[in-house]
Write a protein that binds this DNA or RNA. Structure first.
Length: 266
DNA sequence: TTAAGTGTTGCTCT
DNA sequence: AAGAGCAACACTTA
């Protein structure tokens, strides 16, 4: 479920496991995953290089190469990166594999092929080209910046939270979670949030995203570590509100299903 | 068997 | 012009 917290966990995984190792080989098993580069060029550009730094902006992960340039990763709905140790079994749906000289490899997996991997010269330029708004967890995302990100739109607050050009990093699952904890109806027009609700929404957003990162969002066992009282495990047909225990309501926005509690969120 | 789904893009319609 | 709705992408699961 790669939204901001998941991608941040992936980023830390790379920081811990694969920085400064020499890339020996890059293999692409399905080139549909590549964005603006072919497999041969990607391999040629990376061979002999090292990953030296990581950056995340919203749901995008950028990894800097020594001697310049970055590899960018986007995960779609089913993507991830894994540090696979020498001798361990390769993962199914590995679409791009970066082999290091110590025998370990970095696996970029994507079941549904909705993500993308590519090269970019400059991380800031990449963010600008994709018209990404400020990152939802960046230190500069204070109340004033948050208010600005949601201002000037009559859209439902849920749609505004998910708009990557307004605020980068929040998707369907976390927008539901944040609105649930802030006790705001997802259909509320963003313009109609008063100062108190805006403050509550901002604080809730930061707290939940931080907690999700701490708990290892995006890891296989995250489901076992989801804090009590979160909506996440109840987002399914017949799910009940963990607070009021009433039936959850759903409605569609942009083809996505939104779950909320009509008693707690108004 | 059918449909829905964590994301994004691009197109149509209002 | 903003914003909603929809299809497409490939595959799994309910």
């Amino acid at each position: 479920m790669p939204e901001l917290p998941d991608v941040e966990v992936y980023r830390r995984r790379l920081d811990r496991g694969v920085l400064n190792k020499t890339i020996r080989k890059v293999s692409v098993s399905d080139s549909r995953i590549l964005d603006g580069v072919n497999a041969a060029t990607l391999a040629r550009r990376l061979k002999g290089r090292r990953f030296v730094d990581t950056r995340r902006h919203g749901k995008h992960l950028l990894v800097r190469l020594d001697k310049g340039g970055w590899v960018h990763f986007h995960f779609g709905m089913t993507g991830a990166v894994h540090h696979i140790r020498d001798g361990d079994r390769p993962l199914p749906y590995t679409r791009v594999r970066f082999d290091f000289s110590d025998g370990d490899h970095l696996a970029y997996t994507s079941k549904r092929l909705l993500g993308r991997v590519g090269l970019t010269a400059d991380a800031d330029a990449f963010v600008a080209e994709h018209a990404l708004g400020p990152d939802a967890l960046d230190s500069e995302m204070d109340l004033a910046a948050f208010r600005k990100a949601l201002s000037g739109t009559t859209r439902a607050v849920k749609a505004a939270l998910m708009d990557q050009e307004a605020l980068a990093g929040i998707g369907n699952v976390y927008s539901d979670e944040i609105l649930f904890h802030a006790r705001i109806d997802p259909r509320t027009p963003a313009t109609k949030l008063d100062a108190a609700k805006m403050r509550r929404l901002h604080r809730t957003m930061r707290r939940l995203l931080e907690t999700a990162v701490e708990r290892g969002a995006g890891s296989d066992d995250f489901i076992d570590r989801v804090p009590r009282g979160w909506l996440l495990p109840h987002r399914h047909k017949d799910g009940r509100c963990p607070r009021s225990h009433g039936a959850l309501a759903t409605y569609k926005i942009g083809g996505r299903t939104s779950y909320f509690c009509p008693r707690c969120q108004r």
